[in-house]
Amino acid sequence: MAEVLKVPTMAEYMVEGKQPEVLFWVGCAGSFDDRAKKITKAFVKILSKANVEFAVLGTEESCTGDPAKRSGNEFLFQMQAVTNIEVLNAYEVKKIVTACPHCFNTIKNEYPGLGGNYEVVHHTQFLKDLLEEGRLRVEGGKFKGKRITFHDPCYLGRANNEYEAPRDLLRKLEVELIEMRKCKSQGLCCGAGGGQMFKEPEKGNKDVNVLRTEQALETNPELIAAGCPFCNTMMTDGVKSKEKEAEIEVKDVAEMIAEAEDL
């Protein structure tokens, strides 16, 4: 897999005087976290395969401010938001797709009040649309018939009421989808939200990601599917803490699609 990914930037589009179909908002995790970068790349491969004209902001992208806002630092959040909105508006961005539910929620819900109005979709929603429009074809492939459970990201599910897009994709992969006892609107958090990703947990008797992993393991899965880079990290750590990493993988739905298509 030595081929280099083609990842055009908005600046490059601008030079050519063109507008891409969609801006791919990569996010901090997707840009810097080793595990999450794999998701980013998998998603880019699918976009290329489906001939989607996309662009990224590259070095002009900055944290949406979500962790700051949820930690109570409204100042920092709004500074980040206003800076990002300036860049996005300068490029006249209309549609944004992101593989991070936190970026998704923030840009979709909290940017409009500060002057940033865009159509924002989560990558699972975007992929679902590609499938429905016939621009992307997915068939079972290597995940066909596998026992898989899906962990709902809070900021996609409860926060924004999207439970079906990722599940539709999994169904397309013809997996045996097994729901956890706590799923969809009642799904348990992975433990990363609200700034928790960046601090030690308060004193308790267990880590949240371990509890969530236990719930996932109850379904006896071969793979845990996720739709958020932070959930992915938390669930991966949870599986490791149960010493199950040899048997059970944690994968983003986009990675699964890319793999099924041998991308």
């Binding site: 280099v4 990914l5 990842v7 930037t9 990569v26 901090c28 997707g30 840009s31 810097f32 976290d33 970068k37 980013t40 790349k41 880019v44 990224v56 590259g58 070095t59 992208e61 900055s62 944290c63 401010g65 962790p67 700051a68 930690s71 630092n73 920092l76 500074m79 980040q80 700034g195 990703m197 960046f198 601090k199 030690e200």
Partner: peptide, 27 residues
């Protein structure tokens, strides 16, 4: 720890101490 990641966001646009100029290195 939260203060640390917030000052990272402030200084380099990500909760971790990575340079904003390296944001596209993954590609």
């Amino acid at each position: 720890e939260l203060n640390v990641s917030m000052s990272n966001i402030e200084n380099n646009g990500a909760p971790w101490p990575y340079n904003q100029m390296d944001r596209l290195n993954w590609a």
